[in-house]
């Protein structure tokens, strides 16, 4: 009985490891497609057009505070994830 239990546990662990490996490989390819075909072109075109997606600290300013309009909003806006 103990041997059967050990065999089943081992089999389960093996399948889980195999599934994790397949997931890793799938993620690698699918995310590579999303990254190089989605992010890539937008990034390249944006940069050609002079767009900065992040402030990388190259431009000195008198103040780095940015104004925001963040008082209470309409209740509906708090139901949104954005």
């Amino acid at each position: 009985m103990e041997k059967i239990r050990q065999f089943i546990t081992g089999l389960k662990d093996g399948f889980e490891g195999f599934a994790a490996m397949i997931t890793g490989i799938m993620n690698f390819f699918l995310l590579a497609i999303a990254y190089f075909l989605g992010i890539g072109p937008v990034s390249v075109i944006g940069k050609i057009m002079g767009k900065h997606f992040l402030e990388l600290g190259k431009e000195k300013k008198d103040s780095y505070w940015v104004k925001r309009d963040a008082g209470k909003q309409e209740t509906e806006k708090y139901y949104r994830m954005f």
Binding site: Y35, S43, V44, F82
Partner: peptide, 29 residues
């Protein structure tokens, strides 16, 4: 607000393409 946070993360990758792939790969799942 998760979508606002995702917007920032996508901006990171747009700015740092193609050097940010491994970070993208580990964060996206």
């Amino acid at each position: 607000k998760p979508l606002m946070k995702l917007e920032r993360i996508l901006h990171q990758h747009l700015e740092m393409f193609p050097r940010s792939y491994w970070s993208f790969y580990s964060a996206m799942p």
